[in-house]
Design a binder for these strands. Structure first.
Lengths: 217, 217
DNA sequence: GGTGGTATAACTGTATACAATAATGCAGGA
DNA sequence: TCCTGCATTATTGTATACAGTTATACCACC
């Protein structure tokens, strides 16, 4: 049923490094060397290099004489990204409402149900899963815009805020509200109501930003 | 006086491929193989691979079983990009006006003077230089925002429209008007007037879009 | 003790080799 | 003629080798 796509070592390393940088495991300013990474990961330099080049292209790594240095996302960067999203997501959501397919709606519903499951499940720390399902919902939302330009731009911004979203959903109350807002977006999409969809989406982005603003991160 | 930064083969290949794709030399759908490119360019596969990975990250190349396929920028993509820019450039320009430095202003003036030189110079086709100076001005403008998030987003969009901007400045009247609009932006920046700067910048983006809309490309 | 220069070590850039995989074409049989 | 399976080929993925470069540490000299 599911497409079986063998994922290369280079891709795995890219995803792991991206995650580790964007979640703050490698802090801003840390210098990474190809040699060290390839030794740590038990692979040759070639796939490590490819991953690094891709991360440079995303502007989260930077060359620096010897090795590359982690740029990471500062609190200021994050606020700018929210400002950009506030300018774009309303428009994008309205477009989605006008053209979203039943299949896309179903996939979103699935992500939301899972999100609810993890939020209501007590015990243990599910914030990682919750954050990933939040990502999944927004990815689907961005895909449903039907515009590569919008989707690429918004997805790139969203991905880079991983660290802050993670901290945000650690607060149970925010996780609950976020899910409610996602549901509102979903309902507006399902009703194919562009105005309402734009409004609730903007409100969601604003609330997410405010939630992060309150935190110390 | 000028920083001497030795540019690697991989970087050169990246820039050349990016240019060739974004200006339409490699059309949408063309399949590129590492082997062919490295043979054509007279280098090994290693730097070619790095360039390809970076271009994949920019979403202008796509893996496809064997080789990579050129995505390129469609007319529809381009219009979406203008829509995004219309949402962002006003805000960005206002910020620049509030914080642009004298040195940045000087660099912009230099680019504008050169632009004027090439536009007024008759004979030969200077549209390539004019397009590059247009890029240069916008790069400086984006850098002066003082926000990595805004600068990265806008620069990425601007770069991807190379083909359409090229066609646009081929029309002498549009090149002249574009320069005038750049001058207006420059004056508003120099006066540190955010409102006016936002207004003239938005007008510039709208005019550029309309100029392209008129064309057949 | 400070400074300049040189040796050295660590690292990156590029090329090449080899393994694994996906596509293509051809031969043989139904 | 059309399908099937195998052999061949083209191409990617990964590892390694080597050259060139930059930082670092150490030592002599002021």
């Amino acid at each position: 049923m599911r497409e079986h796509k063998s994922i290369s070592i280079a891709d795995q390393i890219f995803e792991q490094l991206e995650r580790d940088i964007l979640t703050g495991k490698y802090p801003r300013g840390e210098v990474l060397s190809e040699l060290r990474l390839s030794a740590e990961l038990g692979v040759s330099r070639t796939p490590v290099r490819e991953a690094i080049r891709r991360l440079e292209q995303e502007n989260i790594l930077e060359e620096s004489g010897r090795g590359v240095v982690v740029i990471g996302i500062s609190r200021e960067d994050m606020l700018d990204m929210y400002e950009i999203r506030m300018q774009l997501e309303g428009l994008a959501a309205a477009r989605s409402a006008a053209r979203v397919s039943d299949e896309e709606l179903m996939e979103m519903k699935e992500a939301l149900d899972l999100q609810r499951f993890y939020i209501e499940k007590t015990g243990g720390d599910n914030s990682d899963q919750i954050k990933n399902l939040d990502s999944r919902f927004h990815e689907l939302l961005y895909k449903s815009i039907g515009s590569r330009a919008f989707a690429d731009t918004l997805l790139s911004l969203h991905k880079k805020m991983a660290k802050y979203r993670m901290a945000s959903v650690r607060k149970h109350s925010r996780a609950v509200h976020s899910l409610e807002e996602h549901m509102e977006i979903y309902e507006a999409l399902k009703a194919h109501d562009p105005e309402r969809c734009a409004a609730v989406t903007l409100q969601h982005v604003a609330n997410a930003r405010d939630s992060i603003l309150e935190m110390e991160i």
